[in-house]
Simulated scan of single mutants.
Amino acid sequence: MATALAQGVARREVVVEAAAKQFAKHGYDATTMRNIAASTGILPGSLYYYFSSKEELFAAVHERAINHICTGVVKAINPEADPWTRLEQASRGYLDAMLNSSIYASLIVTEFPRRRSKKLRERLIADRQRFEQMFVEIIEELPLARGVDRSYWRLALLGMLAWTYVWYKPSGDPPGVVAGKLVSLLRDRTAA
Rank of each mutant, 00 (worst) to 15 (best):
L5Y: 15
A6Q: 12
A6Y: 12
Q7P: 07
G8M: 10
R12W: 14
V15S: 09
V15P: 05
E17P: 07
E17Q: 10
A18K: 07
A20H: 04
A20Q: 09
A24E: 04
A24Q: 08
D29G: 05
D29M: 10
M33H: 11
R34W: 06
R34T: 12
S39I: 09
S39N: 14
T40Y: 13
T40F: 08
G41D: 06
G41E: 06
I42W: 13
I42Q: 06
L43H: 13
G45K: 07
Y48A: 03
Y50M: 12
S52W: 15
E55L: 02
E56N: 10
E56C: 03
F58S: 00
A60C: 11
E63M: 08
A65Q: 00
H68N: 09
I69F: 00
G72Y: 03
V74I: 15
K75G: 01
K75Y: 14
I77S: 02
P79I: 11
E80G: 11
W84Q: 03
R86Y: 10
E88Q: 07
Q89G: 04
A90E: 03
S91G: 08
R92K: 13
G93T: 05
Y94Q: 03
Y94F: 14
Y94E: 03
M98V: 10
L99F: 14
N100G: 12
N100T: 12
Y104I: 05
Y104H: 15
Y104W: 15
A105E: 02
A105S: 15
A105Y: 04
I108W: 10
V109W: 15
V109H: 14
T110D: 15
F112R: 11
P113G: 04
P113N: 07
S117V: 02
K119Y: 14
K119P: 04
L120N: 01
E122T: 05
L124N: 02
L124T: 01
I125S: 05
R130G: 09
R130H: 14
F131Q: 04
E132I: 11
Q133F: 14
Q133M: 13
F135M: 03
I138E: 01
L142T: 00
P143L: 01
P143I: 00
P143T: 04
L144D: 00
R146L: 02
D149E: 08
R150N: 06
W153T: 00
W153R: 04
R154A: 02
A156T: 15
A162R: 12
W163D: 10
V166A: 03
P170L: 05
S171T: 14
D173Y: 13
G176W: 09
G180R: 11
L185N: 11
L186F: 14
R189T: 10
T190A: 10
A191F: 11
